[in-house]
Design a protein around this nucleic acid. Sequence first.
RNA 1: GCGCCUGUAGCUCAGCUGGAUAGAGCACUAGACUUCGAAUCUAGGGGCCAGGGGUUCGAAUCCUCUCGGGCGCGCCA
Length: 573
Amino acid sequence: MNIFNEFEEKLYAVYAKLSKQHDFPSNLDLSKCVIELPRDETHGDLACNAALVLAKPLNYPPRKLAELIAKELEKDDSVLATEIAGPGFINLRLHQSRWGQEILTILEQADAFGKNTIGTGKNINIEFVSANPTGPLHAAHARGAILGDVLSNLMAFSGYNVTREYYINDAGSQIITLSKSAYLRYCEVLGVKIDSIPSGLYPGDYLIDVGEKLASKFGDSLHQLSEAEQVEVIGPIAVELMMSSIKKDLSRLGITMDVYSSENTLVKNGNVSSAIQKLQQDGLIYKGKPEAPKGQRDDQWAPREQLLFKSKEFGDDVDRPLQKSDDSWTYFASDVAYHFDKLERTNGRLVDVLGADHSGYVKRMTAAVQAMSGEKDMLQIKQCGLVTLLDKGQPVKMSKRAGTFVTLSDVIDAVGADVMRFMMLTRRNDQPLEFDYAKVTEKSRDNPVFYVQYAHARAKSVLRQNKKPIAEVNYSVLTDIHEIRVIKQLSSWPKLVEAAVHQCEPHRIAFYLMELAAVFHGLWNAGRDNLELKFIQESDDELTLARMQLIDATALVIKSGLNLLSIDAVEEM
RNA sequence: GCGCCUGUAGCUCAGCUGGAUAGAGCACUAGACUUCGAAUCUAGGGGCCAGGGGUUCGAAUCCUCUCGGGCGCGCCA
């Protein structure tokens, strides 16, 4: 129970009482009535919009309604005064001692402070990264990886039973390309001179390792195999080596997946045909000719009869093909099967974290999941915007075709995993993000990671300085505006977590921590201008102790937030 | 051409699922270190929230149109 829930419940009680007196309907939806911190401090401690929300359904003038509610709320012990403002806001002023009590709540709940029960008893599957196993992770992959991981942390913090999942696209033509490219490197290792990598193959140096492994395992025996046989032998080995490099990079970022799913396995086990069969039974599949895509030349378009899924019935723009001309499944078909598999395993909601370049894929996939689950919001897709890598403001050249690209591993070497994790959340997920790895290692206000960690280290430092004995704490001595600001920010933590979970927006945690650090630094420096605000007051044990608890609570919440981001809360720096 | 995202201070971005006079950082100006950590803080200027119309007690937020950016668009994954 935090102060906002507490007053919301008080509000519900007030409404129940008023509904009897004035014959208001007792089952009215009060969920839009909220208790919040007013934006302007001069408006009081808490603000309530209930009168504005309820005026219309009750057909009652908002200000009069506000008066009725305010009069009841005023009877509460912790309420000092109420006032009606603007069109009908109810502003509450609390007794000065009320905010201090929040510290006790925070310290008692400790690590559990901020948790909620939104997901209790529910399962959720979060799929992220799922980079093709044809090369190492590059810097831009970090964003989806971190978004997915922190989202998973958030969900778990809210009670969900979370599965972190990675989908390995180890089927289809790219694996053929991969093994051909690896074979070329293998030949190179065995002494065949390669001038340049033919176009269409992967040119990256990382395949030299694979070539070496193949050479040491097979000697020169691979030459005797047919091309198809080579793919069969090399493909799985190359994929495994790529995946182990990917897993290593993820683990450097602090990310551990619960499940790795293989597309190849899915196809081999017949999951695709069984998923298609299910859709067929539901009458959602037919043979037909797909519409020509708009904006392309008609003469390029050769209409062909193929198996189509009625995604249009579920909000997609056109029906989508499931089979290629050689009768093998399209990527979409195996993805349908994969999501069907996930639905069955999860028995709960699915989340896909995708890159911005997959935006054309959202509608058809949500359509498919809706068709299979019968529920509209079973699949939620979070997309992340592009990442532009900069070095002192200059773009870092990345060219996958030339094989010169900045790997995730390089960037972690340069800035560290903590910085990487925090910076990737300093922008809303669907917006493009610039990542300047010269700048993010600065130790200044410019660098939010250090700013937040510095606040934590400072807090821990002053706690170490304190020599006062622990005793009964009287929180009502905390009355300065700077202290109250910090307490208010701390109290908002559970509310913030709820909003972040509800919107699936981990960046809110990062922004919250920056604000909390700012009000805490503000409080600290207030003690420089006004010596009475220094935390440790030699002649006043009571005040000192209360302040120590405030600092303790601050450190606790910062640590809790950083934990959600999987970032260390350092005690000294 | 169609779909999705997007336009907020000079710059980089928030804006709590519709709330009060739209916020923060950077940059700029002026200040605060014999002091619990100055890796910090305080104060100031700076805005038709791209533009028009609509919905209502109330719009940066929802709807619609216009203009300007990004991404995607049959058998690649």
